[in-house]
Nucleic acid binder design. Structure first.
Lengths: 335, 335
DNA sequence: TCATTCTTGAAAAAGGTTTTCCCCACCACA
DNA sequence: TGTGGTGGGGAAAACCTTTTTCAAGAATGA
């Protein structure tokens, strides 16, 4: 930080003194106010540059009532999905001169509301990813958080811009894809039972089951991480399923890894799908058949809505991204 | 945010009025100052709770001169390495009630200094990852940024806590590992020519060459991403190398993917190593031999030093993590 | 010359808190 | 009863900026 003669950060007062003008004038110049003599403006700017002055964001925030900062709370910063949302948000916000504060709730369900509120106080708005927060808790939280954009879950009670991936719609083409390949015994590796996105997938699978009564779709409790997927390999094998729908790419990759260790060949003996299309999915061996969710764009769209909200404009319509099936090498004809 | 009768956020003044005490007393109570009558303190706390008052972080920051916030600037938020550092930093800082601001410089070399300075002004300290910033630029930047912790590059001129991975030392066991497996024609997929970490690897390889004059180590210009690794497959094959050292796991995985497409079997026809041991490396098929760098801990250690700096304490010694070789399935005997 | 417009300055309010300084009351001791 | 000390509480300064108000002076046009 630029320090003045006093050794402390240089303030607007010193610039004013040095330039021989009033504080008002410096402020007017720095904020692009028109009614100021170009000659004086030039001098002020020169002095400001020489002193390396820039207004204290803190003081500015206080008087302006905005911090040029938004936050995002994610359940797990380790998850590539949220990393991508964060990236999309950060880059989009940066273009409008906003910074992004990141909060990792670590899925500590009890603290999520508190953390969100506390984080929200430091900035102008917040993006909330809380897939497992109980509905009634969300309901009281959201109004306190406004402006807020919700990601990956809807709240029927409160009006907040919401961006989702349509997991219910997305899982069906994957199941149908397996079905068309001849798979009749299908296993679904379940995510967190109390997460919205897991419920949606289950609903989608129920539809699929209704369409295809001859298919047997069995749920296997699993989880959301590599390790979870890795751990259920034996259960999968024991289930006799020939096609497996992973809750997400991570569990699919974990399972794939465990299957390799056990000598089970994919897709010859077992077909496997993921969900999300994280960057690594297409580089697996075999490349993972999955449903792609444009998470980076989700982050960007979140910013658009936040930005609109912050400017008192009406945000764009809610968006539900329809996952797009990406057929790759991890699925093949049923044995 | 809790809003008072006026519709605006409730301030310390309203609490004072409601409790029939002065502003000072409320402040003292809220900050745990001892010299206050327990009865009054109780009343103040009750009123504060009822009004859902909590002090404005902005105003607090202004008067306290600290924001309880630190920043991290990374060259590319898409890179799993920096994601992990961010995660380690965020979680460690959260334990001490600090928030983390994230800035993605996007490797726009020209703007890096400006972005860092601007970001730094919003918070109390910053973690800098700028592997490609020219030395002289870093030299003038660092003093301006203090308190600052440097990640993955040292600056010989300035005293700032520095955390690095010893890429020079780390690449040698990988090369030796290939050598011991009989590989004599070895290719190194180069990262960014102007990045410190690439230079260090080259130095390490020079050492290896000196040790093993009969080994032929050729550099192949590549890059740092999946796509870069994927793109050099033909050049690698044309080089006649039987062992390949990737700049990092990403290029190794990209190359692996391209080799699979071309029917080149790993490790039977070609052995391949990565660097970093990102979470996905061990789930590849075959699992990637690599050198593991504890990036999450790097983020945590960065926080420790930042925290010390912020409290006027002497930070722990600089740390250079010696990468640990992880031998997995992607390397095997030379054909 | 007069009226109008433009530019600048001075001063103050506002934003919300912490902290320093001071005062008052109370207690103990002489 | 007077004095010194102590502990608790209030007033005000400080943090730094933007914005508003008011006034004064200069320049311009009629």
């Amino acid at each position: 930080m630029a320090r003045g003669a006093s050794g402390r950060p240089v303030t607007i007062i010193e610039v004013a003194k040095q330039a021989g003008v009033s504080i008002s004038t410096v402020s007017r110049v720095m904020n692009g106010n028109h009614h100021v003599d170009p000659a004086i403006a030039g001098r002020v700017r020169a002095v400001a540059a020489e002193l390396r002055y820039s207004a204290s964001p803190l003081a500015r925030s206080l008087v302006l009532g905005r911090t040029q900062r938004v936050a995002i709370m994610v359940p797990d910063l380790e998850n590539p999905t949220f990393q991508s949302v964060l990236r999309g948000l950060t880059r989009a916000a940066a273009k409008d001169n906003y910074h992004v504060l990141v909060a990792d709730s670590l899925e500590t369900a009890g603290e999520e509301s508190t953390l969100a509120l506390e984080t929200r106080r430091c900035c102008d708005a917040i993006v909330l990813c809380a897939p497992r927060m109980p509905e009634d808790q969300l309901r009281v939280l959201l109004p306190e958080l406004a402006p807020v954009v919700l990601i990956n879950r809807e709240s029927p009670y409160v009006l907040a811009p919401t961006l989702t991936a349509d997991y219910e719609a997305g899982i069906q083409p994957l199941a149908r894809h397996l079905y068309q390949l001849g798979h009749r015994r299908i296993a679904y590796l379940e995510g967190n039972p109390d997460s919205v996105s897991n419920t949606q997938r289950l609903t989608g699978l129920a539809r699929f089951r209704a369409e295809h009564p001859d298919a047997d779709v069995a749920g296997i409790p699993c989880g959301v991480t590599f390790e979870d997927g890795h751990a259920v390999a034996d259960a999968v094998i024991a289930s006799g399923a020939t096609g497996v729908l992973g809750f997400n790419d991570l569990v699919a990759m974990g399972l794939l890894s465990a299957l390799n260790e056990r000598g089970v060949r994919v897709p010859e003996q077992l077909s496997l799908t993921g969900f999300d299309d994280i960057p690594f999915a297409k580089y697996m061996t075999p490349p993972l058949t999955t449903a792609s969710v444009p998470v980076v764009e989700l982050g960007e769209e979140a910013w658009k809505r936040l930005h609109a909200l912050l400017n008192g404009e009406k945000p764009d319509h809610d968006l539900s991204f329809r996952p797009r099936i990406e057929i790759r090498g991890s699925t093949g004809p049923a044995p």
